[in-house]
Design a protein around this nucleic acid. Structure first.
Lengths: 113, 113
DNA sequence: CTGTATCCAGCCGGATACTG
DNA sequence: CAGTATCCGGCTGGATACAG
């Protein structure tokens, strides 16, 4: 089911999906190869667990991520971006570039696993 | 004065500035050449006037836009993007492209003044 | 480990009315 | 025209505890 749009504008519609302070940070972590709840939870921005749960569910709802349960280890779940989710990479890159250039004190710390 | 950052990540810091459902829509309108309160207010997304006031003030605070009063016409105010604000164009474009490709029913309506 | 459940303060934002 | 003021319901998100 397609949710109601504020307008046909692609910017407005996209913001309805990723327009908040947390969603893209989770996507960023996924692009860095992180897959587990605790990994997202350990990011320096310290997202609250209830918010993380909410954002993960919404990412899955919107088809940006997939949830997979391990059958080996009980309670072992991983999240991965779908192609649709991965296609946000240029958006993240544009945002990162803007921050690097326009905001003092920002830097990329590459510590992907 | 530099506000407190959640982390040094350029994505997180940028989201602290533009990470909501309204700010980038105002920037979008400004990139389309709109300058007046009523023009932003007339956009199809129907931003509430108190929210619009808030976002315009924050854009000015963050140095993304400038406010200019006309001395000819009383009560005539215009907002314009600064170079820093204009440098968000690649971000908007990336977002627009993603929406056009990934969300059904979106389209660009060019009716700049 | 991966969440869910609460509590709860504060912010967001729609509607409306009003001011200079 | 360009806002400000206010009411107010609902969402956001931090802290913490608890469950499968």
């Amino acid at each position: 089911m397609q949710s109601q749009h504020r307008s046909p504008c692609p910017v407005a519609c996209t913001l309805d999906v990723i327009g908040d302070k947390w969603t893209l940070l989770v996507v960023r972590d996924m692009l860095l190869g992180r897959t587990q709840f605790k990994e997202f939870s350990a990011s320096p921005e310290k997202i609250a667990t209830n918010i993380l749960t909410d954002r993960l569910n919404k990412l899955v709802e919107h088809g940006l991520a997939e949830r997979q349960s391990s059958e080996e280890v009980a309670g072992r779940v991983i999240y991965q971006l779908t192609p649709k989710g991965k296609s946000l990479k240029p958006v993240i890159r544009a945002i990162a570039n803007w921050g690097l250039k326009q905001i003092d004190g920002t830097e990329i710390r590459l510590k992907s696993k």
